[in-house]
Design a protein around this nucleic acid. Structure first.
Lengths: 190, 190
DNA sequence: GTCTATATTTAGATAGAC
DNA sequence: GTCTATCTAAATATAGAC
């Protein structure tokens, strides 16, 4: 991606990209539309031409996040088998450890924060988490595990938990160590 | 606790108790001082006699949370051995599963949300998480494990992760199932 | 110490010129 | 479609009577 917000992609697209980034870094509640507009290099008043409310922009960012996840898993499917796909997922998490140490897991922080809301945004975030669990579950099932659902929950929980600790203590090594532990765990499964 | 906010405990004490409750339920950013004052049954303007800023009240609530955790572990130490203490910890988490499904782990949600802040409040929340890890680590060490630190991180990460999923999907059974899995894991350790 | 009324600030949202 | 200026609502914080 050589494009920055500066370049002449569509403004709507720039706003969504800027929202994804800033919402992850600052959290939903602490992010103002002015913050997003500045990063997207779109005048504040113009935001409302594309999104009627802040919530609609947040929802668009979540949808973009879900789309990005589907693209990632699609490329993961290039790997030969389900075990390799799971380990590739783990390695991706380990590679992102610096970002995670600074800002947490994008999906996890969204779910945690948006859960406090009564409107539908919390369900949109939960949907992304569901995508992740379902993907892991399919791999465990392809490995022939009858307890694929429980294993998928355990894997994603371990990742979300270590993401939170990595972020809380600002220590990327936590993710690296736990990631390797999870890799050994996956190798140990029949 | 037969005391409600109504009773004539000190106002400062009532404000801290109300803050602990409401901050857990609504999150820090979405909670107003008016919310806390209402639950504590203290007039809004009077809050500022006890706390100069909202942040100071939030910090007092975090400190109270840390104090409560120390009291809990002190009573856990009544258990015969380190393995029983860890399993008692797990059973406590399982017992809290309905609250966790609705509002998440109090410590985890605080750490996740406050991490987005630059002031010192994020470190106050991290300290409570540190207490939890240190306690678990002491038990693993007492069990004779050389890898007590790694095990403590894994245990707390598993708990924090399943708390997030339990909350995200509003499903207390997730905590119950994973809690039993973690109990078996602790039993399996030499 | 207590509490009402209000000042101040900020951010979401809109009006209307171009 | 774009953008400046502004409205409005809400929340933190304060003033000052009691």
């Amino acid at each position: 991606m050589t494009d920055s917000a500066k370049t002449k992609r569509g403004k709507r697209e720039r706003l969504v990209a800027a929202a994804s980034q800033v919402l992850h870094q600052q959290g939903v509640e602490k992010t103002t539309l002015a913050d997003i507009a500045r990063v997207a290099e779109v005048p504040l008043g113009n935001v409302y031409y594309y999104f009627k409310t802040k919530d609609q922009l947040v929802e668009a960012a979540i949808d973009a996040h879900a789309l990005g996840f589907r693209a990632m898993t699609a490329s993961l499917d290039a790997h030969t088998g389900p075990r390799d796909r799971l380990k590739a997922l783990l390695r991706g998490w380990i590679e992102q450890r610096e970002v995670t140490a600074r800002y947490g897991c994008p999906t996890g922080t969204l779910c945690s924060e948006l859960d406090k809301r009564t409107d539908g945004l919390d369900r949109a975030a939960a949907e992304v988490m569901r995508l992740l669990i379902d993907y892991a579950e399919r791999q465990f099932r392809a490995m022939g595990r009858a307890d694929s659902h429980e294993l998928a929950i355990a894997l994603v929980a371990a990742y979300q938990g270590i993401s939170l600790l990595t972020n809380t203590f600002r220590d990327p090594e936590l993710m690296a160590v736990e990631g390797r532990r999870l890799e050994r765990w996956i190798d140990s499964l029949a």
